[in-house]
Simulated assay, not measured.
Amino acid sequence: MKKSAWLPAVIAPVVVAGAVAAPMIANAASDPIAGTSPTAAAVIASIAQSSDAQYSGKLVQTSDLGLPELPTGSGGSSLEGNASDALGLLTSSHTARVYVDGADKQRVQLTQQLAEQDLVRNGSEVWTWDSKERTATHVVLPKDAATPKSGTATPSDIAQQAIDAITPSTKVSKPKDVRVAGHDAWQITLTPKSSGTLVGSVRLAVDQQTGLPLRATIEATGQSDPAVQVGFTSLQYGAPAERLFDFTPPSNAKVETKDLSDAPAHAKGDAQHRSAPSGDEPTFTGKGWSTIAELPKGSVDQSALGDDATGLLDQLTKSVDGGRAVQTSLVSVYLTDDGRVLAGAVPVSALVAAAK
């Protein structure tokens, strides 16, 4: 992880996880979900069928994490991890255009006042572009690599995070018939059984025909309005125009190139209870919805956040035993005096206890 990106990475609400038992999903993979009354496991299993989907649409993200609304655009691109820009994504509403042609062609356009940020992937070529800063980054990916994340989460992102930590600690509702962006969808609600998490529930709406997640809503315990919701307001299936996946930076742009083509692809593994293979990667304690991630001393360089770092930290955090912390309605982050960072969908008190 880029060290300057630590703050949005650990606060981002997509850290929440939890779904239904793995055998249910494995046994339901062939179940049809359109025009029937499917099981929740069949709905979740259908998401995998959407990996090659072709579509374009408009996404709207709203956030109510209890953070003060912060201005964006203080410098740098949120696609690259600038602190105030990325936090701005979590404290106000945002709209993005999304174009997808299968697993290796995507474009996300995040529009802001008088500016646009883009992430474009075409095969192994990935570009990010910030029109305000006139900066572009060109990355050559290794074979079969996943697309880097933009500043805007999609329903698929949140659905995948929920599925990745399948445990028996989650109560799953029967699918409910809903409509999202003009498409019939099955909506399921995942509710933690544990009282030790800030997450109240996660609702996923999945297209009945394609398995594409159309909307994801995360509710915090004790909060009436969604803490985070991201969903399509318009969606059209079919291959987007090929030109949308071609990007050439303007002649006056500042361009940075990163060739990762020879880097080994990392296999997805169990995130819980693993040891960090390098000094910059987190370790995990706990399980399910109460999992806590810890970055070791020295892996976070706060000075790399930029000139706005001190003001942001003072504004967002408060002094607690052994360091400073911020607790949103959904996620808490604890910065210890000895340089470690702990985060999770748990109260600050749980992070302080885990750090001792």
Rank of each mutant, 00 (worst) to 15 (best):
L335V: 00
T167G: 12
L65Y: 11
L70Q: 03
A41F: 09
S290F: 01
I163M: 14
D246Y: 09
L90W: 07
G211E: 04
G344Y: 06
R215N: 14
D280H: 12
L335Q: 01
L305C: 11
G73C: 07
A350Y: 00
A146Y: 14
L305T: 00
S173Y: 08
Q236C: 02
Y99G: 00
G35W: 07
P175H: 05
V16P: 00
A136S: 13
Q315C: 02
W129Y: 15
D321I: 01
G311M: 10
L190H: 09
A241K: 14
E294P: 02
S77E: 05
S201A: 13
A21F: 06
Q54A: 08
A45S: 11
A159S: 14
S275W: 06
V300T: 14
T167D: 13
V140G: 05
S234R: 11
P347N: 10
V180C: 10
G102V: 06
R97L: 13
P192H: 04
A34I: 03
E242G: 07
R134Y: 08
E69V: 13
I33V: 15
V98P: 01
S173T: 12
P264V: 12
A343D: 05
V60Q: 12
L89V: 07
Q327A: 03
G76P: 02
S50I: 02
V139L: 11
Q236H: 10
G298I: 07
V126D: 12
A325T: 09
E219I: 03
Y55P: 00
S84V: 07
K149P: 01
V199N: 03
N82I: 07
L110R: 07
L87N: 05
L204P: 05
K318L: 01
T147G: 12
P296Q: 05
A159E: 09
L342E: 00
S329T: 11
T189E: 13
A5N: 11
L67T: 05
T191N: 10
A227K: 05
G211M: 06
Q315P: 03
L214G: 00
V20Q: 08
M1H: 14
S278D: 13
A263E: 10
G88C: 08
P13F: 12
D321A: 03
V43E: 06
I47F: 03
G344C: 07
G288S: 13
A103L: 00
R134D: 13
D52H: 04
R203D: 15
V230C: 07
H183K: 12
G81C: 14
S92N: 08
Q302Y: 03
D157S: 13
A205N: 08
D164W: 04
R324I: 03
W186F: 05
G231H: 01
G322T: 01
S261M: 06
A153R: 10
L190I: 10
T317Y: 09
T39S: 15
T128P: 11
A48I: 00
A22P: 13
T336E: 09
S303H: 06
A34E: 12
G57C: 04
P250D: 14
D307C: 01
I218K: 04
P168D: 15
G200D: 13
